[in-house]
Design a protein around this nucleic acid. Structure first.
Lengths: 193, 193
DNA sequence: CTAGCATGTAAGTAATTACTTGCATGAAAG
DNA sequence: CTTTCATGCAAGTAATTACTTACATGCTAG
């Protein structure tokens, strides 16, 4: 089907441009140009500009979260697990970087988006809480507020992601893996009893 | 002088609207309305719309960074110092929330802004590196990559800030102080030798 | 009192924007 | 071969946008 191909190309172009310039500044004309499609084709597919954004958000909500991948590779070795998770978390965020940026840029104008992107940390928090609770039962980490702990690790990874995604190497040129390794090393040492 | 008053009101209105809707979607008309000023007054003060943004960024760069405040209250008690810093860091980011948001929203369209906002973490990193180095000399923390450590703490606080600033209590309703306290407790425990 | 200066008001302009309509084309499917 | 369907192309529209010009008003300093 060539139909699906063009629609996808339009969505990709819109994703890129809206994440770069914002919803209003990304005009339907430039989106169509980038997609290599006539502007009318865009309206025939999505009705209007908001329909395009809606399509993006829908694609967003169907995006597989890294839940399974986290649970599968658990070794119950704290530092190893947290490093593996943080790396996966970081790479996941990078892979949906454009979507995350749109979410943060247009969250006030389009509240639906805020709800969608808030789902990601919520799901991850849930998984992490279960993991930390089990680690507490096993006596491998000390008594802490598991929710606050989970949120802290998420914030840590998200902070690294935002720094790299928007500022690149302007703040530091330490390789991402090394950065994550150091932060996870500190974090896991701070959790062991 | 009423002049200064109006210019400031226009900047404030622009700050709010551009941070909410983005540069393009925040029209000069709505900015003038929010400032309670005629639209032409805006152009008489700043020439054109970009001049307004420039004025915002300039105000931004003259903003006092929390450097002194960090150095003044140092007790060389790791957890106490880091909590104090994290709270100040968080409150500082919240106080310039609109500016930070503009920085992240328009960093691609207006690269000058990126450079300005990248300065904040850079300055803070420098201060933190000095602190951690001194703490290492005093034998209070173990041998770690101080730069990566500083960046991690900054990322941690920034992550908390972004979560609260954009998602509010959607992700969690734990009070900010409690969150910061937990994350700093883990972080500082992970640093002690 | 008056001269200057910041602001308001009214009106307009050229460009851009989202979106529409009508028609041509070409490829695939029956 | 013909019908259907996705797309391209040309042209246009109403609304909005950044920005300008000309003139009126009111406050303040000398």
């Amino acid at each position: 089907m060539t139909t699906k191909g063009t629609a996808e190309r339009i969505i990709e172009a819109a994703l890129q441009l809206i994440s770069e310039k914002g919803y209003t500044a990304a005009t339907t004309k430039t989106i169509a140009e980038l997609a290599g499609v006539n502007e009318v084709t865009l309206f025939r597919h999505f009705g209007n500009k908001r329909g395009l954004l809606k399509a993006i958000v829908e694609q967003f909500s169907y995006y597989p979260v890294l839940q399974q991948e986290i649970n599968q590779n658990v070794t119950w070795d704290l530092e190893k697990d947290l490093y593996n998770f943080s790396l996966k978390h970081f790479e996941f965020l990078m892979s949906i970087k454009d979507l995350v940026m749109i979410g943060f840029k247009e969250s006030i104008q389009f509240p639906e988006i805020s709800e969608e992107i808030a789902n990601i940390p919520l799901l991850i928090k849930k998984e992490l809480c279960q993991y930390f609770q089990e680690m507490q039962h096993r006596g491998k980490i000390r008594e802490v507020n598991v929710e606050a702990t989970a949120l802290s690790l998420i914030a840590l990874n998200f902070g690294h992601f935002m720094s790299r995604a928007r500022l690149g190497t302007m703040v530091s040129d330490i390789p991402t893996e090394e950065l994550l390794q150091t932060s996870v090393a500190i974090f896991s040492r701070g959790l062991v009893s």
